[in-house]
Design a protein around this nucleic acid. Structure first.
Lengths: 215, 215
DNA sequence: TTCGTAATCATGCAAGTGTATAATTAGGAG
DNA sequence: CTCCTAATTATACACTTGCATGATTACGAA
């Protein structure tokens, strides 16, 4: 007799990789890194556990890929905010800040995910490289926005000062993002974004609150 | 025949607990949470693995105790800075910021430790409570220093504004502390402290750089 | 000294870990 | 239709994990 139902389906490698990465991310976001076992990941992706070693050289490799995927997603989300609508520098910077400090970027799962990975950044060279890349990417985009705002306002700064401002603004955003994810109940909705706008404005000596109002 | 060398020594419970906690912390700082196994901890503390269950109700309990110990230590370190020397509000706030952004508070092991624990904050209720307590403690002390500085400068603010300022200053410090720990090579020595002083000053609208110079 | 007891140790266990291997099987090439 | 091959599965292995158990042993009390 002919078996009517195939026992599995062959998928393009890229689909499988993506499915495994998504399964990994959702698992880590929900129950932490230690829950992302080979078996749990495979189960969530609805494949056998052998697939992990088939599509990735090791579980560690999958974890790294998942980390980069997650970070790229966060980057894309904030980029979308800063790029949209308006091209007035002030509005763009404000949108960038607000986008970084509201859902879905601010999210318990996201932060938990990030924290779980941060542990590995400490000893894994590839992870550290990846983190460095992401960090500088975010900071440089921020610095570019800052430069545009300050130039428009006729308040140019030295290279050194710009570097410090970018680091500082990055730090406020990171700090707010983190606490917002870890202790959501500690802040009112939109409170983080409002504080972010005010703070970055104060750091640059420019009022961003008007630009932040736009929907 | 009398055995001349005792096979082990009986220690006061508090000593053993502390030794186990220290072993746990050094292990996590060096190789991450996943390396803090019952056997590894016992080996580093030079005791048998049974001691963990004897002095703590579970390994999880030891981890929690270690977390609180670590956080209390960070708190004490920053407190020492803010309390010392001078009692001029501006100098105290500056010292608090500098203390939070220089070694030994800024330290790769410390941040790694904190990140490792943060993962557990997400699902463990007791951990979350502990984190909340530490966070509010730090922020409230910061807010008290801020109030003193603003009052002295004759620039009082509303309760709401003070809350926002405390959250913002806390965020910059946290953000700088974190990146300093994760990417030490990305910043010159004292650069973080300098940025911190300038940033907090900018957020409050008060120049703290003079107060920061003192040794 | 003797003894009791709590601290400490050595060992074992069941469950879970990542990885290796060989058997299956889907789906296209000929 | 018939192979061939690579994707997929199923299973097993060696190892680690946290925890439990029962045997030791230090050390103060009597």
């Amino acid at each position: 007799m002919s078996d009517s139902t195939p026992k599995f389906k062959r998928e393009p490698a890229e689909h499988r990789r993506e499915a495994l990465i998504k399964a990994t991310l959702s698992l880590i976001a929900e129950k932490g890194v230690q829950a992302a076992t080979v078996r749990a990941i495979a189960a969530r992706a609805d494949v056998s556990q052998g697939m992990i070693r088939h599509h990735f050289s090791s579980k560690e490799d999958l974890i790294t890929a998942a980390y980069e995927h997650h970070m790229d997603r966060l980057t894309d989300l904030t980029s979308a905010f800063a790029g949209a609508d308006c091209n007035a520098p002030v509005a763009r910077l404000a949108a960038f800040v607000v986008g970084s400090l509201t859902p879905p970027v601010v999210d318990a799962g996201s932060v938990s995910l990030w924290a779980g990975f941060l542990t590995k950044v400490h000893d894994d060279a590839q992870m550290r490289e990846s983190h460095k890349r992401t960090y500088y990417n975010f900071r440089n985009r921020l610095e570019a926005l800052i430069v545009a705002v300050l130039n428009e306002a006729g308040k140019p700064r030295t290279t050194q000062e710009l570097r410090h401002l970018a680091i500082a603004c990055n730090a406020v955003i990171d700090g707010l993002w983190m606490e917002g994810g870890v202790l959501p109940s500690a802040f009112a909705p939109d409170e983080l974004a409002e504080i972010g706008i005010r703070s970055v404005g104060a750091l640059l000596g420019i009022d961003l609150t008007k630009a932040g109002q736009q929907t």
